[in-house]
């Protein structure tokens, strides 16, 4: 008798639970609603707190960071150089662990003698004329771009958004205000602004963590190998940069410490042109008007 009276209710609850797992909203009887609502809210908060930033959100952060950098440095207008850098960049990007970000990779040259490179989250990579001039070969340029692609693939820029800020984004999304305004309320713009500050500080001002740099170096060497470039080209570039850790620009954001260089050397030591094809690549690099 007990089983018969309890059966339908248990089945209904079981069905509700199963449908709930599939993301279905049910209009429960009024007696059940308060408890269900509390459970839903608690569950939703847990989801929000751990919600990873989406690819499209990363893209919008990257655009804002790029807009800040490009407000400081003008674009180099030489189309041939820009096209060439995109060819080298895309050649290495397609061999990375993240070959197709949300809106693809785009490479551009900044018209400044200051040697530097910036990986804007989402897929835009900016390299200065100063750093291009620092490279002697196409393989060295490929090494620099592969390192920046690795930062995007590893999401190193986007990871610098503070956990507290991202949690606040999630909380704000759960409020009625954000819902009414589709998430575009002033509070969300302020949080977006703060997130841009976090990322900008990392990729332009302070630099990545040592572990992020080492990981990007490892991936860059792997990318160079997969693409057919000389993997020793990264060590060659770092060797040129070493000893300038105290200087600004890339020497601060990507410090070429002796420890870092030693690790890269152990992965793939710098070597002179190893093939006829490498010489062909170097020749086409040297034809550019940088």
């Amino acid at each position: 008798m007990r089983a018969t009276s309890f059966g339908p209710t248990a089945l209904l609850l079981m069905a509700c639970l199963l449908w709930g797992c599939s993301g279905v909203s049910l209009d429960l009887p009024s007696s059940v609603q308060p408890a269900a609502q509390i459970a839903a809210k608690t569950g939703a908060k847990a989801i929000h707190a751990s919600r990873p930033i989406s690819d499209s959100e990363e893209y919008y952060v990257g655009r804002a960071v790029g807009a800040r950098i490009l407000a400081k440095y003008p674009l180099y207008q030489d189309q041939e150089v820009t096209r060439y850098v995109n060819k080298v960049g895309l050649t290495v990007a397609r061999k990375s662990s993240r070959p197709n970000p949300y809106r693809g990779y785009h490479f551009a040259v900044l018209d400044t003698p200051e040697p530097n490179a910036f990986a804007c989250p989402g897929g835009t990579i900016l390299i200065t004329r100063g750093l291009l001039k620092n490279c002697a070969t196409e393989d060295e340029l490929a090494a620099v771009l592969a390192h920046e692609v690795a930062h995007i693939a590893n999401k190193d820029g986007i990871k610098s958004i503070s956990q507290a800020r991202w949690t606040e984004v999630a909380t704000t999304l759960g409020t009625e205000t954000a819902k009414q305004y589709g998430g575009s309320a002033g509070q969300m713009v302020t949080l977006f602004e703060g997130s841009i500050d976090d990322v900008f500080k990392t990729i332009v001002v302070n630099g990545y963590s040592r572990s992020a740099e080492e990981s990007a170096d490892r991936e860059a060497v792997s990318i160079l190998r997969k693409a057919g470039y000389n993997p020793g080209a990264l060590a060659a570039v770092l060797t040129k940069m070493s000893g300038k850790e105290g200087a600004g620009g890339i020497y601060r954001t990507h410090p070429p410490t002796s420890e870092r260089l030693a690790k890269v050397q152990s992965l793939a030591p710098a070597s002179s042109a190893s093939s006829e094809k490498e010489a062909v690549r170097t020749a086409r690099f040297q034809q550019l008007k940088i």
Partner: peptide
Amino acid sequence: LFGGPVKETGSDEVALAGKGFTPEVEAGF
């Protein structure tokens, strides 16, 4: 099952799809 209208919780993840850092937030920024 119950004959009543669906009430969205307003705070489930499906309802939040497309929110967060959106083109509208970029426009405000």
